[in-house]
Write a protein that binds this DNA or RNA. Structure first.
Length: 424
RNA sequence: GCGGGUAUGGUGUAGGGGUUAACACGUCUGGUUGUGGCCCAGAAGAUCGUGGGUUCAAAUCCCACUACUCGCCCCA
């Protein structure tokens, strides 16, 4: 058995769990369409270059290790997508969506791949629901993205939801802020943990994300990005907050909320839910006005979010929320082999044709009715139709309700009508 | 990449050197001719993760490896 197992970090989604998935995806798609988003699907594989440019060079070495990259015989390099946004922006540019009515609002679902060490709620293949608005700078677009995310979790029944909101500035104002932050941290270098000193050197913004002891107090006095925003970012952020207020939507300004990649500009946000442990964030997103240019295209502003389905499922389970059960057959046809089996097979398909979900008993030889009844009971069947020799001879069916009630004989010709009137 | 934990039938567990590895759930069959759930009886199903070592004897002790899992780093 030891050698028959799924690859590391991969997951089987068993039928029981799949109920959560279907429900989540259905809910999300309905919601997105109500907001005017349309579904798109892009390939799982893109040229490696697209992701390399999209991510920026800061985390290049690291990124290389986490991506599933394949060298093709023709010398090109392709990669299993580690995120959605770059591929969607590529599709926007390549398909000339710049000349569609703007903005273009898209959503999608599917797997993304990162070679990380697996952990609770984090796998090497995981699926995301991803939503983007491309070609729009209005803060109301940011609002729409945020509210779509929030309302998705609300629709699913999540409790204890909060918005964490911040602005990360833009290429005009961000560098000056980073310098101010660096200077501040350098002044307090003796108070930094080794890990934070490393972050300070590599990616100063990440120090804000530090969970080291004493950092809460220290960072309280650190410069806030909000005080360093340029005029454009400042007004964008103010407008967004006004709109949230207009909707009576509460949120927390979290100046320590930062996102890893370079391409984020202005708005960054996360939705947090209570009760799912260390991974409080069920989704993260933001604005990325510089991404399209970074990958070598025209300037196209964008804002969006991605949310991991596995993590949503985890949260639902921890909050004790169960998905609706999908329809399963409630009618079963039992028989005793031979001519009765032939009759049963014909009947089962007639019922299905008529829209009645039907389970057919299988049996290579004569099989006891007891075992067929037991089978019915295990599958929540509420009506067993028994076709024995005498029934077949007379063109009748013995209809046995399992939820109480008398067994009756119904002419086969009237069975569909009888079932739809009486049993559903 | 770094650290912790765990590995026994399909699942969850018990057993801690000595003849047929136990229990529960699940699965299957039967409990008089063609009737479920409860109950009863029975059956199938494990070379005790892999490889080595100690021993007369290893599921049990030792070592290594692998896998799984939790956390750290990092997170698109």
């Amino acid at each position: 058995m030891a050698n028959i197992q799924r690859a590391k970090g991969m997951q089987d989604v068993l039928p029981e769990d799949r109920n959560y998935w279907d429900w989540i995806i259905q809910t999300a798609a309905d919601l997105a369409r109500r907001y005017g988003f349309r579904r798109i699907d892009v390939p799982i594989i893109e040229y490696t270059d697209l992701f390399a440019r999209g991510m920026g060079t800061a985390s290049d070495v690291f990124v290389q290790k986490e991506m599933y990259t394949i060298a093709e015989p023709d010398g090109s390099s392709i990669t299993l997508r580690p995120e959605y946004t770059a591929g969607l922006v590529r599709a926007y540019i390549q398909n000339g969506m710049g000349s569609w009515p703007q903005p273009v609002k898209l959503f999608t679902f599917g797997p993304i791949f990162r070679r990380e060490r697996p952990q609770a709620g984090r796998y090497r293949q995981h699926s995301q629901f991803d939503v983007e608005i491309l070609g729009e700078t209005d803060p109301a677009a940011d609002l729409e993205i945020m509210m779509l995310a929030m309302n998705l979790y609300r629709s699913l029944g999540y409790k204890g939801l909060t918005f964490q909101l911040n602005s990360t500035g833009c290429p005009v104002c961000k560098p000056a802020y980073i310098n101010a932050l660096k200077a501040f941290l350098a002044d307090h270098g003796d108070k930094l943990a080794p890990i934070d000193k490393e972050r300070l050197a590599k990616n100063p913004l990440r120090v804000l994300d530090s969970k080291e002891k004493g950092m809460d107090d220290l960072l309280a006095d650190a410069p806030h990005i909000a005080d360093h925003l340029c005029e454009d970012c400042e007004s964008h952020f103010a407008d967004l907050r006004d709109l949230l207020d207009a909707l009576d939507q509460s949120y927390s300004i979290n100046f320590r909320l930062v996102r890893g990649i370079d391409y984020y500009t202005k708005t960054v946000f996360e939705v947090w839910a209570e009760g799912i442990g260390a991974q409080a964030a069920v989704c993260g997103g933001g604005r990325y006005d510089g991404l399209a240019e970074a990958i070598g295209g025209p300037s196209v502003p964008g804002v969006g979010f991605g949310s991991g389905i596995e993590r949503i499922v985890l949260g639902l389970k921890e909050q004790g929320i169960e998905p609706p059960q999908p329809d399963a057959p409630t009618v079963m046809v039992a028989h005793f082999g031979g001519v009765t089996k032939t009759a049963a097979v014909k009947l089962a398909f007639q019922l299905r044709q008529a829209g009645i979900g039907t389970r057919l008993a299988f049996a290579r030889t004569r099989r006891s009715l007891k075992s067929q009844m037991r089978e019915a009971n295990k599958h929540a069947i509420h009506t067993v139709i028994i076709l024995g020799e005498s029934e077949v001879e007379e063109g009748m069916a013995a209809v046995r309700p399992l939820d109480g009630g008398e067994q009756v004989r119904i002419p086969l010709a009237k069975l569909v009508e009888w079932l739809s009137e009486t049993r559903d």
